[in-house]
Computed example of a mutant assay.
Amino acid sequence: MALLEMRGLCKTFRTLRALDGVDIDVQAGTFHGLIGPNGSGKSTLLKAIAGDHFADRGTIVFDGRDITRATPYERARAGLSLKFQITAVLPELSVYDNVLLARQSGESLPRLLMSSSRRRLDGEIGALLERFRLIDRADDLAGELSHGQQQWLEIAMALALSPKLLLLDEPTGGMSPEERRATGRLLEPIKAHCTLIIVEHDLHFIRDICDQLTVLDQGKVLDQGDVETIQRSPKVQQVFTTRV
Rank of each mutant, 00 (worst) to 15 (best):
A48M: 04
H147K: 03
G219W: 04
R57H: 12
L45N: 08
Q85G: 05
L159Q: 13
Y96C: 07
W152K: 01
A78F: 02
R111S: 14
H147G: 13
D136G: 14
R7W: 02
E170K: 01
T214H: 11
T71Y: 01
R119Y: 01
R103S: 14
K11S: 01
Q237K: 15
I155H: 05
V227P: 13
I209F: 11
S116N: 12
T87D: 14
R119T: 09
Q237N: 11
E188A: 13
Y96A: 10
D63Y: 08
Q238I: 03
F84G: 06
L3Q: 05
E188H: 10
L187S: 03
S108F: 05
Q85H: 04
H53G: 09
L129I: 13
L46M: 13
G148R: 00
M175R: 01
T214Y: 11
E107P: 00
D56G: 02
D66I: 05
G39Q: 10
A102T: 13
T241A: 07
V26N: 05
D226M: 10
Q231S: 09
L141Y: 05
V89P: 00
V215D: 09
I60S: 00
F84Q: 10
V236H: 14
L93I: 06
W152G: 00
L101E: 14
F205R: 06
V227E: 06
T59Y: 02
G219S: 03
R137Y: 07
L203K: 06
T172R: 00
G8H: 03
Q85E: 10
L128Q: 15
E5Y: 00
D20G: 02
G33W: 15
G33H: 13
D56M: 01
I206F: 13
F240K: 02
H193F: 08
S105E: 15
L141W: 02
F205S: 00
V99L: 07
A158S: 15
R118A: 11
L16N: 12
A50P: 06
I86K: 04
S116V: 15
D169G: 08
L82S: 03
R77I: 07
T229P: 02
L113T: 08
S176C: 08
A78E: 14
P189K: 11
S146N: 14
E107A: 15
L82G: 01
A160F: 04
D217R: 10
G41Q: 07
L82H: 10
T87S: 12
R118W: 02
P177L: 03
K83S: 15
R119G: 06
R180L: 03
R181T: 10
Q224L: 10
T71A: 07
R119V: 06
D217F: 15
R118H: 06
E144N: 11
K11Y: 04
K42G: 09
K11A: 05
E228N: 11
E130H: 12
D217N: 15
A156Q: 12
L134N: 03
V227H: 00
L90D: 12
L93H: 07
L134E: 15
G174I: 06
I49E: 05
I209T: 05
C210I: 10
H193W: 08
D226V: 09
L45S: 10
P110L: 09
E200R: 04
D136P: 03
A88E: 15
T242D: 11
Y96E: 02
D136N: 13
A76R: 08
R7Q: 12
L213V: 09
I24Q: 12
E200N: 04
H193S: 12
E179Q: 15
F240G: 02
A18R: 03
